[in-house]
Design a protein around this nucleic acid. Structure first.
Length: 274
DNA sequence: CGGTGCCTGCTG
DNA sequence: CAGCAGGCACCG
């Protein structure tokens, strides 16, 4: 479900509510979501700590807790985190609940049960949650055109596969990859190493543009995505190719096509993207 | 690299 | 009822 803009929106929506609050307890209904601890160990380890900060790394949400512990959550396809009062109706597929004061709870809901949680001391969390394998943050200042060029050059794989590879660029998923490639006028199946310098510069600019727009619009809600307050995003109204199969291209009116590239449904304008 | 599995639910 | 879904780990 959520890509970088959605996770960033969740982070921002939770931050002002959660920081400083002690975790009074938790309920684990689906222990397999806990990747590195049993339900018992998790409960023992998290109880009494308070949330000091919330960060994001790629599509991972990173909660710094007091006492030198970090909680890492990946929402995969259908995970949702909502900070609500316990009296609010509890959605189906709610698997983990963290309890705070005054009846407030952080509910983790995940229809497909693909998401996962890690809890570990700060010193070990990077390795435990495999954050260390993630590539560059595409909105960071050090992600330059030259950096993108280095990631692409000499590679025979498809551009789209590179954009989706979290070990190279962290946080880009299927929607924003398709939108960035459309903006840059590049065919997703092009060999990564075949891009001319001006094409790399275009891809860099449009990738940052769609991610920033996605954040500005508070994410893309196609099915399940909501932020930490349960609010839908708005970027679905701005999509130019993703999910637009058969619709006229916004630039040239050619019907948008859907192919499978890099194993994923891929949307593109067959005329504009070469 | 591509293919498969993990799950459940919605769409055509 | 098959096919598909904002993801990723694992296999060969």
């Amino acid at each position: 479900m959520p890509e970088l803009p959605e996770v960033e929106t969740i982070r921002r929506s939770l931050l002002p509510h959660l920081v400083g609050l002690p975790i009074l307890g938790c309920e684990i209904y689906l222990p397999k979501l806990l990747q590195n601890l049993s339900a018992e160990e998790f409960s023992q380890s998290i109880r009494g700590r308070h949330v000091e900060d919330i960060l994001r790394r790629g599509k991972y949400l990173v909660l710094r807790l007091s006492g030198g512990y970090t909680l890492v959550v990946h929402l995969r396809m259908t995970g949702q985190l909502r900070f609500v009062h316990e009296d609010a109706p509890c959605p189906p597929h709610t698997h983990i609940v963290l309890k705070f004061a005054a009846g407030m709870v952080l509910r983790y809901t995940d229809i497909r049960q693909f998401g996962y949680w890690f809890l570990a001391p700060d010193s070990g969390i990077e390795q435990v949650a495999r954050l260390e394998r993630l590539g560059v943050e595409p909105l960071a200042l050090d992600f330059t055109v030259g950096h993108l060029e280095a990631l692409l050059s000499g590679r025979r794989g498809k551009i789209k596969a590179v954009l989706l590879d979290q070990a190279r660029i962290a946080g880009v998923g299927n929607i924003y990859a398709d939108e960035a490639l459309f903006g840059a006028g590049l065919h997703p199946a092009r060999a990564a190493g075949s891009l001319a310098p001006e094409e790399i510069a275009r891809l860099h600019r449009h990738l940052q543009e769609v991610l920033n727009q996605g954040i500005l619009m508070r994410g893309t809600t196609l099915r399940d995505y909501v932020d930490g307050s349960g609010e839908s995003g708005g970027f679905q109204h701005k999509l130019k190719v993703y999910g637009q199969k058969g619709q006229p291209c916004s630039k040239c009116q050619t019907p948008i096509a859907r192919l499978v590239i890099a194993g994923r449904g891929t949307h593109l304008c067959p005329n504009c993207q070469v």
